[in-house]
Design a protein around this nucleic acid. Structure first.
Lengths: 228, 228
DNA sequence: TTAAACTGTCACCACTTTGTAACATTGACG
DNA sequence: CGTCAATGTTACAAAGTGGTGACAGTTTAA
């Protein structure tokens, strides 16, 4: 999904240039020259980053920044301030007010894109850790979630551990003994046939929104996570 | 708790100035002139922000940056690059490599402090008194207030700390042991089931003016602040 | 000092998950 | 085709797990 950007800038020429630049860079861009409207748009559409001119019609940009920070809906959105002023005092004031970055005119559009990019990288993916995937099956160990073909999937704890074990060793045939060893507690005394039942349950769970069966039975050997 | 900072800079005079500045600003500061040592220190002590000179002895700072990004322990730590070069190409390269911000020498120490502060606000909101939010739930650590779906909400001190802990780690499954560790005093010997009771109380408190339950129970694992 | 609020446990209940067994189906092989 | 071992499937009792109200001891606020 494209990251969304809100540009608040009353210099029409500059605004247009920026819109063009960022659309080219793969962003979905909204823009307005008006501070109050910017507040509404930000609260409504929750952009991923806001680019805000220091001085726009009537309202100083810094005041817009302050208000954005006060609203819970917009308080988390990263803001880049844009300004002709380069006085140190102003820069510090901008940052302290809640701007995340501060770029002085004239600036290179490409650098601005790079800064937005850096900001986005920081604020977005904190949500989840690294995800284990195999084809259409994804398992997030941190959030403890599984999706199969895009659909969220429910399963018991044992099936979850089993799937994780498979995902960590895709395309390998795993014997029932190996699976018991890796998925159950060290000292669990489990009938090998029990593995069959849990594999069955895992299959049923993954079936949701998935064409084929991602688990292959290898007769008299075990199972493996594998395509057909 | 003081935010922790790691300064990697081989100009001794500048380094000392920075250390002094940041200690004055309430940071706990470590410093080293050496790139390899920086990697070790970062992995060991997990600072909240790293300030990194572009060119330090032997290893280019940008290479240190790249390596920091590769290590899972340090990949998430915000980095500010410090440089004498102001060529646009370099700035962009620095940002693309994984730096979060880029400051050109000569710079004002106060501005650098402000930039660090801005980064911190994003990565460690509680340290700067930012309002913590998740969906319709907002917690103001300074005013000690919580709103849920716009409604002000009452809760006990333990539930408040619990919610703050959740809000700082949204979408992660937190075990009862982790929660006890983070929400109660270090040496508290608390029955794990007690967590359930407090989660229950927190849920009841948040229910006010909220559609669904923002806390997800993950059977046999713990809880997480999450949708659905 | 007294009343109200908060805390940590417990017991009980509802519900889920688990391992096994019993039965059904499949596939390799003569 | 028939046989038999391996695997799939279903049912179920037992164990596990979490939600919740009650409660006694403690802390906090008035």
């Amino acid at each position: 999904m494209k990251p969304r950007l809100l540009i608040v800038e009353d210099d029409a020429a500059l605004s247009e240039l920026l819109v063009w630049q960022f659309q080219n860079a793969g962003y979905e861009v909204e823009q307005t020259p008006d501070g109050d409207e910017a507040l509404l748009m930000a609260a409504e559409h929750a952009p991923d980053v806001i680019i805000l001119d220091w001085m726009i019609e009537q309202v100083p940009g810094i005041e817009v920044c302050r208000r954005l920070r006060r609203l819970p809906e917009t308080a988390q959105i990263p803001i880049i301030m844009l300004t002709a002023r380069s006085a140190e005092e102003d820069r510090i004031r901008g940052l302290e007010t809640g701007a995340d970055d501060y770029v002085t005119k004239p600036f290179s559009p490409r650098e601005l894109v790079a800064r937005v990019h850096a900001l986005l990288r920081r604020s977005k993916p904190a949500a989840t850790g690294q995800v284990l995937s195999f084809q259409e099956v994804h398992l997030d160990p941190v959030a403890h979630r599984v999706t199969s073909g895009g659909q969220p999937v429910d399963m018991g704890p044992t099936e979850f551990r089993l799937l994780r074990y498979f995902l960590e060793r895709p395309r390998r045939v795993l014997s029932r003994a190996q699976l018991i060893d890796g998925v159950w507690n060290r000292d669990a005394e489990i009938d090998e046939r029990t593995v069959d039942v849990h594999v069955g349950r895992l299959r049923k769970a993954l079936k949701t929104g998935l064409a084929g069966d991602p688990i292959r039975t290898v007769r008299s050997e075990g199972y493996s996570l594998d395509k057909k």
